[in-house]
Amino acid sequence: MKKLFTLSSLILLCASCAVIRPGEVGIKQTLGKFSSDVKTQGTVFYNPITSKVVKESTQTKNIRLVLSLPSKEGLSVNSEISILHRLDGSKIASVLQNLGPNYENVITSVFRSAASDVCAQFFAKDMHSGMRAKIESEILDKMKINLEKQAEGIELIAVLMKRIQLPRGLASSVERKLQAEQDAMRMEFVLKQEKLEAQRKIINAKGERDAQIIISEGLTDGIIRIKAIEAFKSLSNSPNAKIIITDGKTPLMVNEDTKTSSKKETKKEKTKNK
């Protein structure tokens, strides 16, 4: 009898307590009325006949939706959406009283309304471009306003448009436009490269011309004879056999104009002698 009483007491004790784990909050509901005391972690004792403990997670949750969104030009854009949200543990009573335990259905309905209003102000191509972040931000702001009118305690973290599927014809047009823009950018790069190469050649040609002018201005007859003597000495030091032909006046380099003029003078002298 004593063992039976002990067993009954243990069963009654287990039935009259609830364990609140990390990431959860619990609130006691007695005869349909929620208590103002919110429990975070640990064990909560209650009367199982008149009361119960409602537990809700305060961790971040993800609502995934796949739906069709309207665009400004009247097209339908298929999109995969993620709505990140979590509960404020201190205001769980407001959420349960006003929205009930299935509050995520309310979040989904609010999102559908806000997304339709916001996306109808943008073109379909904007949802597939850098405007996506702006669209997400405006949907989130509109959702917060609508939810605050109904209950407090739901914290909306982000609205993410993870996959956008444009209508087939529009997708092809966008791809052709992007391809044309890439071709134009590539052609512009090629033209700039060609202009730079042309400028390089012009600068190089001017440098060679200026160098030739400086060299020609500095080459006097005396310098030419000195260079010729130096070249002759270098050749004479070489161990290889060699034959050097000169006109008898210059050791190595012969000026054709000088040879021609000297030949003419020799002919004139011969004519005079005759």
Rank of each mutant, 00 (worst) to 15 (best):
N98E: 15
N98G: 12
N98V: 13
N98C: 12
L99F: 13
L99W: 09
P101L: 14
N102A: 14
N102R: 05
E104R: 02
N105T: 07
V106W: 09
V106N: 08
I107L: 11
I107S: 08
T108Y: 00
T108A: 02
S109N: 12
V110E: 00
V110S: 01
F111H: 02
R112S: 01
S113C: 03
A115L: 04
A115M: 03
S116F: 08
S116D: 05
D117G: 04
V118I: 15
C119V: 13
A120P: 03
Q121L: 12
F122N: 05
F122Y: 14
F122H: 09
F122Q: 00
K125L: 05
K125Q: 07
K125N: 06
D126E: 13
D126P: 11
G130A: 13
M131H: 08
R132T: 02
R132N: 08
K134S: 14
K134N: 08
I135F: 10
E136L: 04
S137V: 11
E138A: 07
I139A: 00
M143F: 10
M143W: 01
M143I: 07
M143S: 01
I145G: 09
I145K: 14
N146D: 07
N146C: 04
L147N: 06
L147H: 08
E148F: 11
E148A: 07
Q150K: 14
A151E: 11
A151M: 14
E152G: 15
E152K: 15
G153H: 03
G153M: 11
G153L: 07
I154E: 06
I154G: 07
L156H: 02
L156Q: 01
V159G: 00
V159Q: 02
L160S: 05
L160H: 12
L160F: 15
L160P: 00
M161L: 15
M161T: 06
K162M: 04
R163M: 09
R163Y: 13
R163A: 04
I164M: 05
I164N: 03
